[in-house]
Structure formats: C-alpha cells, structure tokens
Computed example of a mutant assay.
Amino acid sequence: MTGAEFIAAVAALHRASAEDDLCGPFLSVLPVTAVAISTLGDPLGSETVCASDSTAARLEEIQLDLGEGPCWEAVRTRRPVLEPDLQRSRSAGWPVALTALRDARLGAVFAFPIRFGTIDIGAVDLYHREAAAFPEGAVEDATALAEAVARQVLRRALAGVDDALQGHTQDGNPYSRREVYQASGMLAAQTGAGPSDALLLLRAHAYAAGRPVRDLARDVIARDVDFTDHTDSAR
C-alpha cells in the first residue's frame, strides 16, 4: 500500500454517499480478506451496515446473534481487539462466539471501535481466512479509517431510526435486523418478559436450535413459533 492509496481510501470514506460501499476502502488498503461494519447496542441498535461478502456478513451475524465477540469487546473497551490466530486463541471474554467463529473456520479477526464524539457507534471487523499477524502500521491505518467512517455510519444509522419512527416498512439494508426487534416485542407480550429479557430469550432459543436469530424472528412474526404457553417451541 502506498501513501496515496491510503489517502484515497480515507477520502472515499469522507465523501461517501448513502449508497456507497463503506467496506471497500478498508479492504483496498489493509491486509485482510473480508470486512464488515456494524452498529452495536445503545443508542443505535445492533445491525450490520455493510459487509464485503457473504462470509463477512455471516461472521458478523454470529456476533450480533450471540451478543458477544471481538466487535462487542472493541466497543466496550474502546480499543482494538486483535486475534491473529483465532483457532489457537485462549480469549476468555467471548467463549461462545469464539467457538462459533472457530467452527466457521475463521483464521484471524481484528476489531476496531467506531466512535463519534462521545457516542459509541459500533465496530469495524476485519477478517482473514487464515491466521495472520496484523502489522503495527496497519493498526494505525485501520484506526484512522475507523475514525473516517464514523460520521457516515452514524448518518446511516440515524436515517434508519427516522424511517422506523415514521413507520416506513421498506428497508434498503439487506442486513437489517428490524424483524429481530419486532419479534422480541411480540415475545415480550407473549411471556411478560421485559424488552432486554425477551431479546435474550429469542437469542437463546435460536442458539439452542442452531438457527440464525433472524430466521427464528421471522417465524415468530409469522406466528409459526409461539411462546405464549411454553418456551421450547423454537424449531
């Protein structure tokens, strides 16, 4: 990578429109094979903003479904999380996600927090299919790119919140998890659980059934799965 290529990547993130790919600039200048960017937790909700390919999207979905993983740790600590050899990692901070990412045959993951001012927005996850070290210079570059993308991610997340508040049902984001929150609301009504516990229950049943949370959420919304009288009907 040249200095000119890095400057071009930063500039592309700063001038990106609502339809532009935010993952491409990371992939073009960093030593990784896939990239995903997600918002995480409050205040913007948890949703993938972009993914460079279907593998990155699935790896991101694993972490969002489980509510743990390197991206969550990066947001919590506000520091990069570097796992150059995931198959041999002894990280104890996210044991379930570690097992799931290993099962997906992921080699390495490097997560960088995204913040705008005092707002914790989410994280950029940089994936490598093989075990691979992340050079010190690349850490600095990835940190700068994460800072450059923050404004764009915040704008897109707020636009999604505005659409939801206005009752718009059309969603241009293929990674939208809106149905997850709709299903957890239905589950809360069925079981009497609070919103956070309802989401946790939905995640737990999806994990036990070996299904993505979004798949189970669709069944709940379609009333193919009902938690009113029992809590073991996930299938």
Rank of each mutant, 00 (worst) to 15 (best):
E130Y: 09
V35Q: 04
A111Q: 07
A132V: 06
A150P: 06
E47I: 01
D219P: 00
G3V: 06
G69M: 10
D53Y: 02
A51C: 07
V149A: 12
L82K: 08
R90L: 15
L126A: 03
I62V: 13
Y175S: 10
L154H: 12
P135I: 00
T143F: 03
Y207E: 13
D21K: 10
A9Y: 00
D197I: 07
D171S: 14
Q152T: 08
L200Q: 04
D103S: 06
E136D: 09
G137M: 03
V180G: 09
A11L: 04
R223P: 14
P113Y: 08
G185R: 15
A198N: 06
D103W: 03
A144C: 03
A123Q: 07
R88H: 15
I7P: 00
G45P: 14
L44V: 09
G194W: 13
L187P: 10
L82H: 09
I119C: 10
P135R: 00
R156K: 14
I121Y: 06
T143M: 09
S184A: 08
D219G: 02
G137K: 00
R178F: 05
Q170S: 14
M1C: 08
D163R: 10
R58L: 01
P70A: 13
L44R: 14
D215M: 12
R15F: 01
L145K: 01
L145P: 05
T48M: 10
A56M: 04
T39D: 07
T118M: 14
